[in-house]
Simulated assay, not measured.
Amino acid sequence: MKSVAFDEIDDLNTAVYSFPAIRGIQAGREYYSAMVQLKLIPAIFRFNESEVPVQFRSQRVINRARIPEIARYIINNPNDYIFSSIAASISEAPVKFIPADPDNPNSKVGKIVFPMDARVLINDGQHRRAAIEEALKERPELGNETLSVVFFVDAGLQRSQQMFSDLNRHAIRPTKSISILYDARDEFAQSIRVIADSIPLFKDLTELEKTTISNRSRKMFTLSSIYQATAALLGKTEKSKKITKDDEKLASEYWSVVAENIPDWQLLIRRDVSASSLRNDFVHAHGIALHSLGILGHALVSEYPNNWREQLTGLHQIDWSRSNPDWEGRAMNNGRISKSQMNLALTSNYLKLKMNVPLSQDEEENEIKFMNVMKGRAL
């Protein structure tokens, strides 16, 4: 890239962008944190790299499937949506920072100016940019709101590619459990938090932050596993998780009745046994069992709407010990608990068969395949 002095921009006969900004230094390079109106975001970041070979791009190709969900988030929450900054590089164009105080050229507060025809590449935030463009079509009044953009003066393709790598290298998504814990918009998540805090089986025994539980933890289930299991119980999907008072009542009652019919859980509730010892010895102390019991519950309530509670007494017949060979290939693979989709399906099948609940056609097909595999292993 040709180096261009900041003051050369004054000599250019071209239209420019000008944004309030703060000047900073990282790794010896100046960068600028600017406030940009949402309606300008699509115009500034208009370069499409999707047809450029990957080795000559500074970003991954955008995943269009993510855009509607992010756009809907903005549209549905116009008064309390929040976005983190977009990081971008201005390349092949002069950039000028004008201090707010003309008598203090070292001032960090001022405005950034660069030509409108400059190539501005997103290093982090391309999906936010696309979602903003979609949201503005439905809510153009949001166009005057602002998003912070961190502008770097680009030193070439290699630098941009390294920036993308560095910005994403340490990015860690929050765990599902803590997302559920902090989500104030998701009514289903709110109900799960109430259930986890009110039912003896879950109260003070739920891991609220992590999605896995260490061997020595005194917690029994994660908040995310309770969420998934209850969604299965109520027949909720990712796209349809509206929950009613009747749903909440059913969920609370179901998990309470299930706990009454698993003696080891009663010991845990009374603190006569530790969660860690149950995890070592029993399948029912793992998320796959809770999720499977949720699937079982949905079928029980449908099959026996008036006496599903009585049907749950059949849980006493199940040998939950990990030494029970029936769990191999279902809840366990080679002696280790596994929660793959197929393991989950086969574990819930097992519970249904033990409780005399009919299998669906897909479940029957999975069961036949499983039995054939087990027969093959026995030969």
Rank of each mutant, 00 (worst) to 15 (best):
P263E: 04
A259Q: 10
S277Q: 13
H286P: 01
T244R: 08
P263I: 10
L223D: 01
E253Y: 00
L267H: 08
S225Q: 10
L267Y: 02
L233G: 03
I288V: 15
S276D: 11
F282V: 05
S274M: 12
R218P: 00
P263D: 03
A251F: 09
K236W: 05
D272A: 11
E253S: 14
L250W: 01
S252K: 15
E253H: 11
P263T: 07
R279K: 15
D246R: 14
T230S: 13
A275D: 08
P263F: 04
S274Q: 11
R218Q: 14
D281K: 15
M220Y: 10
N215K: 14
E260C: 11
H286D: 12
R271C: 01
A259G: 11
F282Y: 15
H286F: 07
L223S: 02
L208I: 13
S292M: 05
S292P: 03
A259L: 03
L233D: 02
D272E: 15
Y227G: 00
K210L: 12
T212P: 03
I213M: 07
S292G: 12
A275T: 11
P263Y: 03
I262Y: 01
R270H: 09
K242S: 13
L233N: 02
S225C: 04
Q266H: 02
S276N: 14
A232I: 00
Y227R: 07
T230R: 11
S240I: 00
D246F: 02
S292E: 02
W265C: 07
L290Q: 12
L278F: 05
W265I: 06
S277L: 12
A232E: 11
S292C: 09
M220L: 15
R279T: 10
I288W: 07
K210A: 14
I288R: 12
A251M: 09
F282N: 13
A229G: 09
S274Y: 05
T230L: 10
V258W: 05
T244L: 03
N215M: 04
L233R: 06
K236Y: 02
R216I: 08
T206A: 13
V273W: 00
S276P: 00
L293G: 01
K239R: 13
V257N: 07
A275M: 12
E209K: 14
S292I: 09
S217D: 06
P263V: 07
L278Y: 05
G235P: 02
E248R: 14
A231T: 01
